[in-house]
């Protein structure tokens, strides 16, 4: 913390990177000491290093790549390390249609991920089957028939800003110490 200590009020500050305000810091005489609950620190660290799995089945995958690239750049928020193996990933972004043949693969990937793990359904296909809802014999009508989904992003495909918003909302909820059940609830 800064050296110009404010002894008089013992003020609490929200660190600039905290955002959600879950981590409380106290400036003390002498400076340089942060007191907080261990859980808060863990949640803060966890929320800022969510590593996505590179899982893209169709169109939304291209927008996910656009989100990762120069203009939108989700590494600003701690998602830069896209992992190819589920065992190192924390969040799976279901980008694209899930068909009946792919569903067991998706389930297996999800099972291979280590806890705590989060799921974002990106785009209309992953939410409900989207444009491929009627008269198809092979499309799963929503990825939540296969694995539990935390955040839904609407669009076909969603803009990169929409995906960023979803990722940041997920971060904030994790920072607030929510469990997965609380994140999934409609009005937490």
């Amino acid at each position: 913390m800064s050296n110009d200590n404010k002894i008089s009020n013992g003020s609490s500050q929200i660190p600039p990177s905290g955002g959600g305000g879950a981590v409380q810091t106290y400036d003390l005489p002498g400076g340089g000491i942060v007191l907080s609950k261990l859980d808060d620190v863990i949640n803060w660290a966890r929320s800022n290093s969510l590593w996505p799995l590179t899982f893209a089945t169709s169109c939304c995958g291209i927008e996910m790549m656009a989100t990762a690239s120069a203009k939108y750049d989700f590494s600003r928020f701690g998602f830069e390390v896209a992992r190819a193996t589920p065992r190192q990933a924390d969040v799976i972004i279901i980008a694209g249609t899930i068909v009946n043949k792919m569903a067991p693969v998706l389930k297996r990937l999800y099972d291979q991920m280590a806890d705590p793990k989060y799921v974002i359904a990106m785009g209309a296909c992953a939410i409900s089957g989207g444009p491929f809802f009627y008269n198809t014999y092979s499309v799963v009508k929503g990825a939540d028939h296969v694995i539990p989904v935390d955040v839904y992003v609407a669009g076909c495909p969603p803009r990169p800003e929409a995906l960023l918003h979803a990722l940041i909302s997920l971060q904030e909820k994790i920072k607030m110490g929510m469990t997965r059940e609380q994140i999934k609830a409609p009005n937490p």
Binding site: N100, K101, Y134, S138, K141
Partner: peptide
């Protein structure tokens, strides 16, 4: 293309019906 277990079902035949997967418009 089709997963295992689809032998004998021919989806692009005009009279193909699949009450489990298909939601008719």
């Amino acid at each position: 293309i089709l997963p295992d277990g689809w032998e004998g079902k021919n989806p692009l035949r005009k009279d193909f019906e699949d009450p489990v997967n298909m939601i008719k418009l």
